[in-house]
Design a protein around this nucleic acid. Structure first.
Lengths: 227, 227
DNA sequence: TTATTATATGTAAAAAATACACTAATGCAA
DNA sequence: TTGCATTAGTGTATTTTTTACATATAATAA
């Protein structure tokens, strides 16, 4: 009983963009200008063009919404519940990204589709359009798994950072405290950070040594990092 | 310079099905009856129906080609290079599965699309259609990663199996030898297998105790298993 | 100069991973 | 029926990794 189906699917990409802002783990949301879910917050996304690679589409969306390029972007999962999108079949290929919130200004040129772009606390999300809450939750889970394998947290930090800042990123994402000495031991022995001859200046108290990440090969599995 | 695109994408699912047969890791391939790549071997796949969930589509494909249900099936990755499919844009959501080859007979009802179904040795693949070689390679990589986290190898074994058989599956997938005592220690201490009061009979030599897997929760991350 | 605060550091104990070699049970052939 | 061949099954010592934990240091502000 095969039904001949002539209509084809629509395919979008949605990008879950994380950052740390004011000591909180945040996710970037846009407010929808149109139905369905008009007025609701959603993950930035858009239709994949007919001759556009999936990664390229996700990068384009990212750039359109945040002006950011050259970022850690990873395909997350493809969500295809036939009921996830009202009144039509839209399959979405979700990505996630980590960025530094300081060096970017939120922008959205396409006022016809979006009325607002804002960072939202991950543990205090508004009501979301579609299955976007599920996508964010899955994204968090995956980000935690990735963090154990490879130090993607550096994407959240400036080029030069202190080990305390790095540890703080880890603690935010993993949602638990880590021991300072063990953390430093592990980071330093893993050879993924380069010790600089510079120190923090501006703050009061003892200056902290600065470090930088050196030639990180992302996606490479280099044994486990933190668990 | 936005080009208005009215045509939409086609979406397929391809399922990489692994088994162990005659002591080799095998993958199921079908021979294409039509262009493109007429006569070439390919991963079994097909178009996702308009109101069909992705997982359901993959399960359907699996059943159509192998008559097998209730299997370990995991979404692998979505491949969307605009050039992966000649003359049209086809995005494919790939899955992978592990099955026991004994208790299934290969079948393909749709002779109009497939002329043959066969198991092929993973390390001796024929020339494949589309980007299917890449998909299989990625699938292998992912299967190895999964195996370290959760004992999916049991899908390759009969309900009752010996620890030697289990170890052999691991060695085949991981592509390396494991120490027998350490392997058994780890498996037994993990509490994932249940010792039975039965032994192998038919073979010559000392009979081996049989074990079974007990209520495996797949996809659950239970710490690491083998590395 | 003293108090305050964040930086920075090492060691001992516990747990996990690894390396490694012999005995046990059976079938088969002499 | 004995012993030879073959696969099953077992334990310990060593190394590596992970964890737990407390005090001295460098700067600023009062």
């Amino acid at each position: 009983m095969l039904i001949k189906e002539t209509k084809t699917h629509e395919v979008t990409t949605d990008v879950v963009i994380f950052t740390i802002k004011n000591g909180k783990l945040m996710v970037l949301l846009v407010r929808r200008a149109n139905e369905p879910f008009k007025g609701k917050w959603a993950i930035p996304g858009g239709f994949i063009r007919l001759s556009e690679d999936l990664d390229a589409a996700a990068l384009r969306i990212l750039k359109e919404k945040t002006n950011v390029q050259n970022i850690y972007l990873e395909q997350l999962y493809t969500f295809g519940d036939p009921l996830r999108y009202p009144n039509s079949r839209v399959i979405t290929c979700a990505y996630f990204a980590l960025i530094r919130s300081d060096d970017l200004e939120l922008s959205f040129e396409d006022k016809s589709q979006i009325t607002d772009v804002q960072w939202h606390k991950v543990n205090q999300l508004p009501s979301l359009a579609f299955d976007h809450r599920e996508i964010i939750e899955y994204s968090l889970k995956r980000m935690r798994e990735r963090l154990e394998l490879c130090p993607i947290a550096f994407q959240l930090l400036p080029k030069k950072f202190t080990l305390t800042e790095l540890q703080y990123s880890y603690e935010l994402i993993m949602g638990k405290k880590l021991d300072k000495r063990n953390f430093r031991k592990k980071v330093l022995s893993s050879k993924i950070v380069k010790e600089l001859d510079e120190y923090t200046k501006s703050t009061s108290k003892r200056p902290a040594r600065l470090y930088s990440f050196d030639n990180i090969t992302l996606n490479s599995k280099r044994g486990h990092f933190f668990s």
